[in-house]
Design a protein around this nucleic acid. Structure first.
Lengths: 345, 345
DNA sequence: TTGCCGAATGCAACCGATTCCACGCTATGC
DNA sequence: GCATAGCGTGGAATCGGTTGCATTCGGCAA
């Protein structure tokens, strides 16, 4: 199919090594390089990735793992990553775990073997499990913080507090929290933020759910109504919209009789009726900054050491470049039509 | 990192070629194979993909291209593909074009070079452009039919007609169609289905949109109201929900005063108020069947011919296996709360 | 003029697997 | 009893790049 480097070399009247150097910025005479590039272009030469990967130890592939592709929050994160990656040198593997912790580990290990670097978005496994699974691969966490690993998150706690304060300011004194998935770092933080309202004399009821989806939200809607709360905060917008729909179906008027707050600000949040008040993240930004961080850390890394004998200095060099960066973005409350002052007794 | 085949060979006391055969089903004595597998397992051996790819010409990667990742329809298709692909031997590249035809071509060409096979979901380019871009790569089209290429579609025309008939049966005599993107095969068919209602004496107005998104739907909502139609059919659910929201905002009661029909049956369709009547596709199924078809066609294909001298017989063989299959699924109308009988004069 | 240095280039080894070929051995048929 | 067929195995070539090392050549300083 595509010509090999040797064919280009012959056509240009030079050796294969010179072509290789011309293509990848080695020391080549300017006029020679120009001629080679011209020939390569004319022949439509593209280096064979497997061959290159064999010597360099690099695949040119990055990977991202998300719990659920049909959750718009994750779709947006991937969009952010894809926008940043768009170069001829890198392609993006996408995998999902379907919120299954067992599969998560397998998938991480498989991705680690087939990519140069990995983005883990909202992983559900424990810190320790994740550390083990990734080994010494280049990984950036998204929407999850583990000490010592690079990550991009946003200030979940502060953002969640804005939602809580909003409800308190509206006079609500009994608030339900609809939980997210087991093992979710963000769920822990959001739940804690809501529970902290107890310090202000607010009663908090935690309502469990099997999965952070619309369907679970519908189920949770009924549970929420039995608690006697006047407002609900859900782990994410899908759940919140599910609750919202159930309330409306059961004849509860929102926001007059009941207030609903979600998290993530997915597109759907502004499309439902009433539009959802929600704690917004800079979703695409999480993806693009994560990709940035990953590419940067990759840049200072050797594929597998190659033939350079001196391990010590390389290690020191890597240490310095791989110093973990933890980026924290800002979140903020977006007030829409699903929240209002507490109904009179 | 991972041990090489030679290390396994030495540990097992055999040659590398025997290990290779043991791993990939060649002719090896059962007891030898068992011993090798045991050693390989103990050492945690996984074949190096680049090395394998170099000789076999296969990368073990598949790719899928969609117009927009944050469109839930495409997210579902990808889910279907991912579910089917889940094997240790294959990984999935995901790319999006952001509905940009220029980028579409570049992306296809890049994916063709880096994968063994490609799924093109709802491509916007012309038949000819697509044929050129894919060359002789293995490709399966999703939600698009091009004569001679394998594809998975559903009977868009018949399904769309159900929506049209539904509105006619409800007494509507003036129907607006909110169009989808330029170059979209499904848009052509859906528009034609709506226009065919003219044969039954129904007036049809076509309303253009810049993109098949919620935001465009909101804009289209105002245009629709100026037409004097009593019902609207939109190219997809995102547009339909946008129109719906705009109507509600402007005080038009749905479905009492105005009926709305969408296409695709994305999750959101059942979550909005009122829930959307929509023409449903078997979305995930499109993805999984497409993946099936692709894997099957790959199976009968050689990476790059290798060293087998006899071209003629191989070609004949390939011909037979690569005979294009065009799978057509069924679509159907899901009636929900956004459609009702035409309002009295 | 001689010697040295660095830039430009070619040669050849190598990355880790697959696969063709040859060899030895046993079982089978005549 | 000998030729033959076939299985199991090892050796070696090969895929298409990259890179360390050797070589050549021109230029500049001594």
């Amino acid at each position: 199919m595509s010509p090999t480097i040797h064919e280009v070399a012959k056509a240009a009247g030079v050796s294969a090594s010179t072509v290789s150097r011309a293509m990848s910025g080695g020391s080549v005479h300017p006029s020679t390089r120009r001629a080679i590039l011209e020939v390569a272009n004319r022949l439509g030469y593209t280096p064979n990735r497997s061959a290159r990967g064999l010597t360099t130890g690099l695949t040119g592939n990055l990977g991202i793992l998300v719990p659920d592709l049909s959750n718009p929050f994750f779709a947006k994160v991937i969009k952010g990553v894809a926008a940043r990656i768009r170069t001829p040198d890198n392609a993006l593997f996408v995998s999902e775990t379907d919120e299954d912790v067992t599969r998560e580990r397998e998938t991480i290990e498989s991705l680690v073997r087939n990519t140069d670097g990995l983005l883990l978005c909202s992983p559900r496994s424990s810190d320790e499990q994740i550390r083990e699974a990734i080994g010494d691969a280049s990984v950036v966490l998204l929407n999850r913080r583990i000490p010592g690993l690079p990550s991009v998150t946003y200030d979940l706690g502060a953002a969640a507090m804005q939602g809580v304060q909003h409800l308190i300011a509206l006079g609500h004194r009994k608030i339900a929290y609809v939980t997210g998935p087991e093992g979710s770092w963000s769920n822990d933080i959001r739940r804690a933020a809501v529970l902290s309202a107890q310090d202000s004399g607010v009663e908090v009821i935690v309502v469990p759910t099997p999965a952070p989806t619309f369907a679970s939200g519908v189920l949770a809607g009924d549970l929420v109504l039995t608690t006697g709360a006047t407002a609900v905060i859900a782990f994410n917008d899908l759940l919140a919209i599910g609750v919202l729909n159930r309330l409306v179906t059961r004849g509860v008027r929102v926001p007059e009789e009941f207030s609903v707050v979600g998290h993530d600000d997915i597109d759907m949040a502004s499309m439902c009726t009433p539009p959802l008040t929600t704690v917004a993240a800079q979703t695409e930004r999480i993806g693009s900054m994560g990709a940035d961080l990953l590419l940067r850390s990759l840049h200072g890394r050797r594929g597998r050491g190659g033939r350079d004998g001196n391990g010590a200095s390389t290690d020191a060099h890597e240490q310095e470049i791989l110093t973990p960066s933890e980026i924290v973005l800002q979140g903020s409350l977006t007030v829409r039509g699903s929240t209002a002052v507490v109904p009179p007794q």
